[in-house]
Deep mutational scan, measured.
Amino acid sequence: TFELKGKVGKVVKIAEDHYLVESEGDKWIAYSDEKLSLGDRVMVVDVDGLKLKVKRIP
């Protein structure tokens, strides 16, 4: 299986209740415990079905 946990991506869209993150050339629906901005670099900390939980990284 394709393992996304630990992968790095970038926030490419902000929606009302989720983010769109591009990682490894694909776009994924993501959510975070912190507020993210367009262009933020993020790391995948968990995968919930087809949704990614991400956190901001420097």
Rank of each mutant, 00 (worst) to 15 (best):
T1C: 15
T1G: 15
T1I: 15
T1K: 15
F2Q: 15
F2S: 15
F2A: 15
F2P: 15
F2K: 15
E3K: 01
L4C: 15
L4V: 14
L4I: 13
L4N: 13
L4R: 02
K5V: 15
K5A: 15
G6W: 03
G6L: 01
G6N: 02
G6A: 01
G6T: 01
G6Q: 01
G6I: 01
G6E: 02
K7M: 11
K7G: 03
K7T: 06
V8N: 04
V8K: 06
G9F: 12
G9S: 02
G9W: 02
G9M: 15
K10F: 10
K10M: 09
K10H: 08
K10R: 12
V11N: 00
V11K: 00
V12A: 06
V12I: 08
V12K: 06
V12S: 06
V12W: 11
V12M: 11
I14K: 07
I14D: 07
A15G: 08
A15Y: 07
A15C: 10
E16R: 13
E16L: 11
D17M: 12
D17S: 11
D17R: 13
H18K: 09
H18F: 09
H18G: 12
Y19Q: 02
Y19K: 00
Y19R: 00
Y19I: 07
L20W: 08
L20P: 00
L20A: 06
V21L: 06
V21K: 01
V21Y: 05
V21R: 01
V21F: 15
E22Q: 05
E22K: 06
S23V: 15
S23C: 15
E24D: 06
E24T: 04
E24R: 01
E24N: 03
E24L: 04
G25E: 05
G25K: 04
G25I: 03
G25V: 04
G25M: 05
G25P: 05
D26R: 12
D26Q: 14
K27I: 10
K27C: 12
K27A: 07
K27P: 04
W28L: 06
W28T: 02
W28Q: 02
W28Y: 14
I29R: 14
I29F: 12
I29K: 11
A30H: 00
A30V: 14
A30I: 02
A30S: 14
A30N: 00
Y31L: 11
Y31W: 13
Y31T: 09
Y31P: 00
S32D: 03
S32M: 05
S32Y: 02
D33I: 13
E34C: 11
E34W: 05
E34K: 06
K35H: 08
K35M: 06
K35S: 08
L36I: 06
L36Y: 06
L36F: 05
L36E: 00
L36H: 03
S37L: 11
S37T: 09
S37F: 12
S37H: 06
L38Y: 08
L38G: 04
L38E: 10
L38H: 07
L38R: 07
L38D: 05
L38K: 06
L38A: 10
L38P: 09
G39H: 11
G39T: 07
D40W: 13
R41L: 11
R41F: 10
R41N: 09
V42R: 00
V42I: 14
V42T: 04
V42S: 01
V42F: 03
M43H: 04
M43K: 03
M43P: 00
M43A: 05
V44H: 01
V44Q: 01
V44S: 02
V44C: 09
V44W: 04
V45A: 04
V45G: 03
V45S: 04
V45P: 00
D46E: 06
D46H: 03
D46M: 03
D46G: 03
D46C: 05
V47D: 02
V47G: 03
V47F: 09
V47P: 03
V47M: 08
D48N: 08
D48Q: 12
D48A: 06
G49Q: 09
G49H: 10
G49R: 08
L50A: 09
L50M: 12
L50Y: 14
L50I: 09
L50N: 07
L50K: 07
L50S: 07
K51E: 06
K51S: 13
K51Y: 13
K51P: 02
K51W: 13
L52V: 05
L52A: 04
K53C: 08
K53Q: 11
K53T: 12
K53Y: 13
K53G: 05
K53H: 09
V54Y: 01
V54T: 02
V54L: 07
V54S: 01
V54K: 00
K55V: 13
K55N: 13
K55G: 05
K55M: 14
K55C: 15
K55I: 14
K55D: 08
K55F: 10
R56P: 07
R56T: 05
R56W: 08
I57Q: 07
I57K: 03
I57S: 07
I57P: 04
P58M: 11
P58I: 12
P58E: 09
